[in-house]
């Protein structure tokens, strides 16, 4: 089953042509890794999928992205709705510093109008458990979100994203600012999440892509060079440039 199908996607920053005719199809409840050298358009690509690209001044998009068969760029679609169904975790942990740990997780729920304390409590606990953070914070839910370590903050951001029950989760290099132990925890988490979620993860780390993903796509200079099963990409890449990149001979 394909969850997201990208057709002829182009993205621009004023006159920079950042993505050039991308076609890709993302399978449901699988992990798809996006790899490629810095500046090749990985972040831009996933930010097109939750319609976050367009909030940058002078940024433009053309082409189609079908989400459950419907084009998210058609004029009938509300981007707010899309962003609730397609969550995102950023490269740098970005909890809201004035909100408590509890309120950080509940933020999206409150936006959706959920008010009952019982409901909120339940979801906050459940998602913090899913994000493997509950045991570390259950006694200080009222502490500020930024009183946590970097890795904990990132898991808090994951919990915040999970709380609104998205169907797809986009990760933009979620571990690049973290130590190896926190990284391992988050990889473990991603592995568990794919049972219920479709996941797209940008990563600079080849081993990480190999460990967590089912499919891998290799981007270069705004183009999709190769896309396939992770195993195939890493053992028998079809394109010379892919091979060069994964064997560390460039980028």
């Amino acid at each position: 089953m394909e969850k997201v199908k990208v057709e002829g996607l182009n993205a621009y920053f004023s006159n920079i042509h950042a993505l050039k005719g991308i076609n890709i199809s993302i399978k449901e409840k699988k992990v798809t890794a996006i790899i490629g050298p810095s500046g090749c358009g990985k972040s831009t690509f996933i930010r097109c999928i939750n319609r976050l690209h367009e909030v940058v001044p002078h940024a433009k998009v053309s082409g189609r992205i079908l989400f459950d068969g419907k084009d998210i760029y058609s004029s009938a679609i509300d981007p707010i709705e899309i962003r609730r169904r397609i969550g995102m975790v950023f490269q740098r942990p970005n909890p809201f510093p004035v909100l408590s740990i509890y309120d950080n997780v509940a933020a999206g729920l409150k936006l959706n109008g959920m008010k009952r304390k019982d409901d909120l409590d339940e979801i906050v606990e459940k998602t913090l458990k899913m994000a493997a953070l509950w045991d570390e914070v259950k006694n200080k839910l009222n502490a500020s979100g930024v009183s946590l370590s970097g890795g904990q903050q990132q898991r808090l951001c994951i919990a915040r994203t999970l709380a609104v029950k998205p169907e797809v989760i986009l990760f933009d290099e979620p571990c690049s600012a973290l130590d190896p132990i926190s990284t391992a925890k988050i990889e473990e988490l991603i592995f568990q999440l794919k049972e219920n979620y479709t996941i797209i993860i940008v990563t600079h780390n080849m081993q990480q892509a190999a460990r967590v993903s089912d499919y891998t796509s290799f981007f270069l200079l705004g183009e999709l060079v190769e896309f396939g099963k992770t195993q195939d990409i890493f053992t028998a890449p079809k394109d010379k440039r892919t091979e060069a990149y994964i064997t560390g001979r460039f980028g």
Partner: peptide, 11 residues
């Protein structure tokens, strides 16, 4: 990144 955190949550 603060604005984007909120926007990405569907704000």
């Amino acid at each position: 990144n603060q604005r984007e955190a909120a926007t990405a949550l569907g704000a």
